[in-house]
Amino acid sequence: MTVVLAVIVGLLYGAGTYMILRRSLVKVIIGLIFLGHAANLLIFTIGRLIKGSPAFIPVGAETLSEPYADPLPQALILTAIVISFGVTAFAIVLFKRAYQTVGTDDLDKMKSTDELK
């Protein structure tokens, strides 16, 4: 399972990097979303995948017995998902406004702020 997830993470990073280099605004957004997902899955995988042993101390025992699933990476991912949800929503609205104002979705044509005057 770890190998499968590792491959998926790699694919998402590759696809995200490719998409973010495109000139179209929509594709850049999709690329950002891919990169965010890749980071989340990476944390999930790196937290070690352990099935069916939650981090509960059994009755009568003093400490946890190995192996147990670490709940912290999942808490991190949950926070990161919420944040990326909000930020992506904002970015989509921003990109839409930019498209309406500038009249193009081609990033190469959005360089009025970089030109020397």
Partner: peptide, 30 residues
């Protein structure tokens, strides 16, 4: 217009940086 064009570049690169930061945090924890 200028603000929105500037904001697109600012937002995109900062989101990219956040994604890299997040991945680094995950690996560091690992």
């Amino acid at each position: 217009r200028g603000q929105l064009e500037g904001a697109i570049k600012y937002v995109t690169l900062n989101l990219l940086s956040s994604a890299i930061f997040l991945a680094a945090v995950g690996i560091l924890y690992g």
